[in-house]
């Protein structure tokens, strides 16, 4: 089973990295989402997966059952999912904004930040500064 888990994570991370290498902003965001999921699976598997009962203290009991699952990786995974969700939402909003104001999602054509203060800029070109 371990091999299956490892291959699953490898597939996620591999696909994610491949997408990250793209020059298209949306593909990069999809790649990031895949990578995040790969990392989340890794946390989940490093916490140990087995036939265990959920880590909820039963009615009347004082402590977790002996065969209860480890609650910590679940908390970590939940946190990571929430953070991944927020960052993906932000990245999508940013990409949309970039498309609307720059007119492209190809990072090769995004040169505005470079142009602001490029060393080889001729002096006559008006340099747009922030206000």
């Amino acid at each position: 089973m371990t091999l299956v888990y490892a291959l699953t994570i490898a597939a996620y991370v591999g696909c994610g990295l491949y997408m990250m290498l793209s020059r298209h902003a949306v593909r990069m965001i999809l790649g990031l989402a895949l990578l995040t999921n790969g990392a989340i699976f890794l946390i989940f598997f490093s916490g140990g997966i087995g036939a265990t009962t959920p880590p909820v203290i039963p009615q009347g009991a004082e402590a977790l059952a002996a065969d209860a699952a480890n609650a910590l990786p679940q908390a970590l995974v939940l946190t990571a999912i929430v953070i991944g969700f927020a960052l993906t939402a932000f990245a999508i909003a940013l990409a949309l904004k970039a498309y609307r104001s720059l007119g492209t999602l190809d990072v090769r054509e995004m040169q505005d930040a470079e142009r602001l203060g490029a060393p080889d800029l001729p002096l006559s070109t008006p340099v747009k500064n922030h206000g």
Binding site: A86, A93, R100
Partner: peptide
């Protein structure tokens, strides 16, 4: 609040 501040802006635009 967090989800809607993104959502509303995306819809409006």
């Amino acid at each position: 609040g967090g989800v809607l501040s993104f959502m509303f802006r995306l819809y409006e635009e």
